[in-house]
Design a binder for these strands. Structure first.
Length: 973
DNA sequence: GCAAGGACGTA
DNA sequence: GTACGTCCTTGCA
């Protein structure tokens, strides 16, 4: 891995003096630095590609406003004159240029670009990467590493010198007379007149280097200053020791900036003509446009100049002066870049309108059946550098379905289908033959494999995890990818899941449905049984529509500030989940079979008993029949109705009846438990065992939960019983493979900790800091009883209240949960709010926010939308209030474990630990490791999970993970 | 054959 | 009181 950081702000200032001035022809806007900047980006990527191509890249800018250095030393950078007028409009333009080149542009309020670069360099170094910083700023020289793993690259053009000049340890020594690690000590002494760092008056670089080399470091020097022979020098040092110390703080770069995008988010993206040329055209940079057109094999004439940026662009800005110089108009317009409805948002809206207007024409799709046409498609994909791709298979389970065809699209309106597995009709015995005219599957995969695995070609899909797993079974690793389903999820949540819904909503296009093609129910055909021409229309449409959706949705990420979420929390997780699904977990069939028998017998006994008690036979599984018997025939009191008017026979109702001495109620409860365990688990799980792997492979849905959690299905392995002893027996059937051991690692009280952090509740934070029993502590605070010897009932109530808080408490709900009166529950809540007043503030803030904005957010910026926050229906409204209180808590915890999962595999690898992540259950991760290595694996797993929030968010509560190893899940948990 | 409702397993 | 997925029955086609 190789990270390239570009010092954007540093470049602009230096280029301004080094480059000849240049004005845009049509309106005289000064753009010299912008052009130099574009040339530099182009040159950097070209020259470095030839050598050691950076795999990750970002341009870092200074943000406006104060930094910690201003507090440290109010005169810091005080003498700096205001930026020249010609430079001002070029600041935002260089940011636009960065985005046009598809490079992340990063700036953070309160931090200088240097600190952000130091942080990333430090992160990359820790990860064992190479780092190049494109800057010649001497303040960055302290980051240079003696082994060359971090180097600077001077990119300012200078006559008679090569365009790019490396700055390594030798160059640093030439400049400062010391090794890079001592640069800050030298700077502390000699100061810096440009930044107004004081240093020790009268000491320059030479003297400073001499002193530091003699005494080793600044502190030692200051301590032993009295030993210095030269009078003047000695007195100056003693008198100004504090100034030197402050200076050191000023020049020392912060390496722990809480950056929002982690390293993975900086992965290099291919340049997109649709982003690049509108910008370059608006700037009227002819030469570089031509060079990039050649490089990308794109036609700039296909693109219009960005209307926001082009000379005399239309968009009037509210409040902007009507008549003004072109310069101030440009300034005003650029400021409007951040206003919704302009800049990126406008671009996204225009793209949407443009794409939506292109009709779908099924006749334009191609069926590829010859090597020549296959080769032509391969060439086309290589040219364009991106491809929408979709696999058609014999089923929905990526671990068993076989490939039937592949569809591709590189340009909207075009698409092809490559059939490889359509089967001849016929009975089962004569099956196995393929329809003639299809290319051999091996030939097709051999031709496509280099593309699918090429780092230079972006694969775009809808629910790519599925295709990834299919291709993996054919020996192909799909990367890099973009997923329209995940982009949509990052933007809009699970609202428009599914390509048919996305196409309908964004493109107003109704796609061919699979049922239309293959029928429904038992008679539904599998894809291999379809006629190729019909299959091709459906399949090629999928690829074409996916590409259209990508063009519509991707620009919205930047426009709606969801890029970080998508790049750090969604896109990198998909391959991790794909691998977990592919691994599966071993389930002991015999244990389940024995349990099924046991449960069946005991259920039958309860069934007979129920008939006896009811005085008649009826279907115990029918709530309707049961309700009629209990509240009709037996005439019991206290029955409640469900919303459809049926008798309610839930477990809580039956428990109440049982307590009143109705034995039938207890019998039903027991029967239900056993049949539930049998039907949903012990009978069902064996049917999910994969013939090929002998394991059970769940499927995770990454994009269907409102709060950002995952969900698991087919089978759902996130609701395997644990609360009852019969239920836990099912967990003993989840076992480690021979020679392996399972590890279960779970977050302790993660949601309460997240609540303590978000709502800033000092009492809760202190309790977690001290490692107290949080429910007992709550009980002690609320009921004024000591934790020592606390009755379990008291603790139980406090626990229920804590959970209630997380769920957006109501007196009604708490009363139900605890079986107490509404009034009493209301008193509890009141007491709680009095003891922890911050909680009420948090809750009120969420309610206000959801009504005003229609969404709330997690600490990582995930938006959770509530479209009916202002519903006219009061119960719906209070439902949204409770959900808006819960969502940031549940969602932030979900984001934390997602981050842990994304980092887990590389960190295990780095630590030399062989461990396979198998399952996720919201706050728990299950691993499989070779027997005897659990001692090595557990500390790494705990470290990654406990530090998962950083560096994006520094939590103000400790995070605790408990991990255990055992042969089965029950014992490991 | 399918959708809705009820019930219940998990965090 | 939050967030899910699955099984079963029921009622309508």
């Amino acid at each position: 891995m190789h990270l390239l950081l570009v010092d954007g702000s540093g470049y602009i200032f230096r280029a301004f003096h080094a480059l000849p001035p240049l004005s845009r022809k049509s309106d005289g806007l000064p753009v010299g630095c912008v052009q130099g900047f574009c040339n530099m980006l182009f040159k950097l990527t070209q020259d470095m590609d030839a050598d050691e191509a950076p795999t990750h890249m970002a341009v870092i800018f200074d943000a406006k406003g104060k930094t910690f250095r201003d507090d440290l030393y109010p005169d810091y950078k005080a003498q700096r004159p205001p930026a020249p007028e010609e430079l001002v409009p070029q600041f935002p333009l260089t940011r636009s240029a960065t985005r046009a080149f598809s490079i992340p542009s990063i700036e953070m309020e309160g931090w200088e670009a240097d600190d952000i670069m130091a942080t990333y360099a430090c992160m990359a170094k820790e990860a064992g990467w190479k780092v190049t910083i494109a800057s010649s700023d001497k303040d960055l020289m302290q980051l240079v590493e003696p082994d060359g793993s971090i180097r600077l690259l001077d990119t300012i053009p200078r006559p008679g010198q090569p365009p790019l000049r490396w700055i390594g340890p030798d160059e640093v020594f030439t400049k400062f007379g010391v090794t890079p690690d001592k640069v800050i000590d030298v700077q502390a002494l000699c100061g810096d007149s440009v930044d107004n760092v004081p240093g020790v008056p009268g000491i320059g670089v030479k003297t400073a280097a001499e002193l530091i080399n003699t005494y080793g470091n600044l502190e030692t020097l200051l301590e032993r200053a009295g030993e210095i022979k030269q009078n003047a020098r000695r007195e100056k040092l003693i008198a100004n020791a504090d100034l030197a110390r402050i200076s050191k703080k000023l020049v020392t770069l912060e390496q722990k900036v809480p950056v929002e995008i982690d390293l993975d988010g900086l992965i290099r993206q291919p340049m997109a003509p649709s982003a690049l040329f509108p910008f370059l055209k608006a700037m009227e940079f002819a030469t570089i446009t031509k060079r990039l057109a050649t490089l990308l094999e794109a036609n700039p004439d296909d693109f219009e100049a960005d209307p926001e940026l082009k000379a005399g662009g239309e968009t009037p800005v509210p409040g902007a002066p009507q008549k003004s110089s072109s310069l101030s108009v440009a300034k005003a317009k650029l400021a409007a870049n951040v206003v919704p409805g302009s800049g990126p948002a406008r671009f996204a809206a225009e793209e949407h309108a443009r794409i939506k207007a292109i009709p779908v024409n099924y006749d334009d799709y191609e069926i590829v059946t010859t090597q020549e046409r296959l080769a032509a498609w391969v060439a086309k994909i290589q040219d364009v550098g991106l491809v929408a791709i979709d696999t058609e298979t014999t089923g929905l389970d990526p671990q068993t379905a076989d490939l039937v065809g592949i569809c591709l699209s590189t340009k909207i309106g075009e698409g092809c289908y490559i059939p490889v597995g359509h089967a001849l009709a016929g009975d089962l015995l004569s099956g196995g033959g393929l329809v003639e005219g299809q290319l051999p599957i091996r030939d097709v995969l051999d031709a496509l494999k280099p593309l699918i695995e090429s780092a230079a070609i972006l694969k775009i899909g809808q629910n790519v995890k599925y295709d990834m797993e299919i291709f993996w079974r054919y020996g192909i690793s799909m990367a890099p990818i973009d997923d329209t389903m995940l982009i949509s999820y990052a933007l809009d949540g699970p609202r428009y899941n599914g390509m048919d819904v996305l196409a309908d909503h964004w493109l107003s296009h109704k796609t061919i449905t699979f049922s239309e093609l293959a029928g429904t129910g038992k008679a539904q055909k599998t894809f291999d049984q379809l006629e190729i021409p019909a299959a091709a229309r459906y399949a090629a449409e999928d690829a074409d529509i996916t590409l259209r959706l990508w063009h519509v949705l991707k620009p919205r990420l930047a426009a709606e500030n969801a890029t970080t979420l998508y790049e750090t929390l969604e896109r990198p997780l998909a391959p991790v989940l794909a691998r977990m699904e592919a691994r599966g977990i071993t389930v002991d069939r015999q244990i389940l079979a024995r349990l099924s028998g046991d449960f069946a017998q005991r259920a039958a006994a309860f069934e007979a008993e129920a008939y006896e008690l009811a005085g008649e036979n009826f279907n115990l599984g029918s709530p309707k029949q049961l309700g009629d018997i209990l509240f009709g025939k037996m005439g019991l009191e206290g029955g409640t109705k469900t919303k459809t008017g049926a008798w309610s026979t839930g477990a809580d109702v039956l428990e109440d009846l049982a307590a009143k001495g109705i034995p039938l109620a207890r019998t039903i409860v027991d029967w239900r438990q056993l049949t539930k365990l049998k039907g949903t688990y012990t009978d069902a799980l064996p049917t999910y065992m994969n013939q090929r792997t002998g394991r059970v492979h769940t499927s995770y849905s990454q994009a269907s939960v409102l709060t950002g959690r995952l969900s698991s299905n087919d089978p759902n392995l996130q609701n395997i019983p644990v609360r009852t002893s019969d239920g836990r027996k099912i967990r003993t059937a989840f076992v480690a493979a021979p020679g392996k051991t399972l590890i279960s690692a779970d977050y302790s009280q993660i949601e309460l900790r997240v609540l303590a952090h978000i709502a800033d509740i000092q009492a809760l934070k202190d309790a977690f800091e001290e490692g107290l029993d949080i429910h007992a502590m709550t009980a002690s605070e609320m009921f004024n009883v000591p934790v020592e010897g606390m009755p379990s009932e008291v603790r139980r109530r406090a626990k229920a209240i804590n959970f209630g808080i997380i769920y957006g408490i109501s007196a009604f709900g708490l009363a139900n949960q605890l079986g107490i009166a509404r009034g009493e529950a209301g008193d509890y809540i009141k007491t709680y709010f009095e003891r922890f007043p911050g909680i009420r503030d948090y809750m009120d803030a969420q309610k206000v926010k959801v009504k005003a904005d229609g969404f709330v957010t997690t600490i990582f910026g995930r938006k959770i939308q509530f479209p009916n926050a202002n519903s006219g229906n009061p119960s719906e409204r209070s439902f949204v209030e409770r959900a808006s209180i819960n969502a940031p808590i549940q969602g932030s915890a979900a984001d934390i474990i997602r981050r842990a999962m994304i980092r887990m595999e590389p960190e295990l690898k780095k630590a030399g630990v062989d461990a396979d992540m198998l399952l996720q259950v919201h706050d728990e991760l299950i691993f499989e490791v070779p027997e005897g290595t659990e001692g090595a694996a557990i500390p790494v797993i705990k470290r990654v999970m406990e530090n998962a929030a950083e560096p994006a968010v520094r939590l103000t509560v400790p995070i605790q993970v408990d991990a255990h190893a055992a042969k089965n899940w029950d014992e490991a948990h």
